[in-house]
Nucleic acid binder design. Structure first.
Lengths: 149, 149
DNA sequence: TTAAAATATTTGTTGAAGCAACCTTTTTTA
DNA sequence: TAAAAAAGGTTGCTTCAACAAATATTTTAA
């Protein structure tokens, strides 16, 4: 079913403006799918995203500033999201030795474990809902990059 | 600049999982662009989306249920979003005559005016940031539809 | 026909998001 | 080098969102 049928809108100003709506709609669809998984592990979407960035840095820490910079949805609330992760024992906070204004955030063993468990389900989902060929996925990446260029 | 450089992540599990991140990132980019416009007219993103659906129905009303169904980001808060639009005089609420449980929501003349003004800026933005050819936009729509299929 | 189930919407509560003000530390510059 | 500006984080306040419970009406089923 195409985007027109799904949102019951026949006409668009242009093929490009249809694509814009299609991106927003597909984003919402993906979030909906992920949300169930995240909730079943007691995480919110931003919490999960921060954990993933931290794993990317591991075994090095990341400053709060770096986390904000890398987040998909830049949040002005990074501190409090990290609070939650710290309360759950998934990350460790410590003062940065090189710059005492900065705070080093490090993913804990427990955080790594949790992500590892989630990875399995995540990849299972990606495999099962990957309807694109390799070439098509490449083309999609190319076009999305071009939208933002 | 491609998605890898923008979020500083070299490796992805697959081209498809890269595309998933790319959709989320591009969505965030579009929202960022729109947000400024919406705010300058005193609207939030969900408020704007509901207004647009109502314009699509005009001169017929839409029930709250229909609005939720058509929203890109299905919100559990539709009632209160409509409250805000009503307070601003952009929509009118009335009991549905066919089903007294339901509420008819109708966009007001003022609501239509506001959208008309926003349209101009919206289309100006779309024209200026449309980097895709007609064929490419079609291909993008095709691929996004396929992701959700 | 009447009680039970379902539907449409609203509202209370709680947790998260955005903005701006604030504190501390570092960098700049006169 | 001392004051001003900038940078990194945190926190208070207000608004927004999700979830569930409540209300009113309609539909279903015994």
């Amino acid at each position: 079913m195409g985007i027109s049928e799904e949102i019951k809108q026949e006409k668009f100003k242009s093929e490009f403006s249809k694509a814009v709506v299609n991106i927003l709609y597909t984003n919402s669809w993906i979030n909906q799918q992920n949300l169930q998984l995240f909730k079943s592990y007691g995480l919110t979407t931003p919490q999960f995203n921060i954990l993933r960035i931290l794993r990317g840095q591991h075994p090095n820490p990341a400053t709060v500033n770096l986390l904000i910079d890398r987040m998909l949805d830049k949040s002005s609330n990074a501190s409090r999201i990290i609070d939650k992760l710290e309360q759950k024992g998934l990350v460790v906070r410590s003062q940065c030795s090189k710059d005492r204004r900065a705070v080093d955030v490090l993913i804990s063993a427990r955080g790594l474990d949790l992500l590892a468990k989630m990875d399995d389900e995540m990849h299972a989902w990606e495999r099962s809902s990957n309807n694109l060929t390799e070439k098509e996925a490449e083309m999609l990446n190319f076009l999305l990059d071009k939208v933002r260029s």
